[in-house]
Amino acid sequence: MDLTLKIWRQANSQAKGKMVEYKVSNVSPDSSFFEMLDVLNQNLIEKGEDPVAFDHDCREGICGTCSLYINGRAHGPDSGITTCQLHMRKFKDGDTIYIEPWRAKPFPIIKDLIVNRGAFDEIIQAGGFVSVNTGGVPDANAIPIPKPDADLAMDAAACIGCGACVATCKNASAMLFVAAKVSQFAHLPQGKVEASIRVQRMVAKMDELGFGNCSNTYACEAECPKEISVSHIAKMNREFLFAKVAAQANEK
């Protein structure tokens, strides 16, 4: 396959970026999208040019490191996958492919296609955990959990923290990411104890970091590589409402 690539190049967080055109030829349809970019970078290095910087690590769709907005879609044209799982057979010979970084204010660009998603870590630090220390916990089977609840918790827990939901949302909302964590714990007895404080802290942190509001377009669900359902957002909203009502009742 011969392809034309239009890629966002930006030397560092301060520099001004722009789209730059490159050609790659003889790309195998069986290669992954990153293997195609590897070929491009190899060519650039041979010419003494700066290779294109992009985030990637496991290359099997689980670490959540990779990003990329490809032809206007987070993680590219296929659904239910990350960019590293995208294969060139999804494109046609002669195609022009536009490659951009995640664009969202809370995810500043570091270089080229790499952004800083530290904001996600900060949200988890605010409350995305069950407050148990190592040791002194009950036997694992002392906490029976109905299988449907455990399965729902697992559906939510599948989030890889890649940020596609934020990148694809016109408001750069992190609702799906936050909801996935809130909902995982809300479905489990272990998480119930601090459910109220958790959702309040995580939502407050999300707002503080500059993520936008949810306007129910469901773009996040459509682009989520792990196909996490927006029903978790509804669950979070209920949790948040209960928490507020409970807080008000306590004040009275």
């Binding site: 069950v130 148990v132 916990v137 009950p138 694992a140 906490i143 029976p144 455990a150 697992m154 998480g191």
Partner: peptide, 22 residues
Amino acid sequence: NNIIDQCVAQGVPFAREYGGLL
């Protein structure tokens, strides 16, 4: 065995049987 107990307490969603046990 302590590891499994610890992870369950943290909310790790291990696979379960219909009776609710692991």
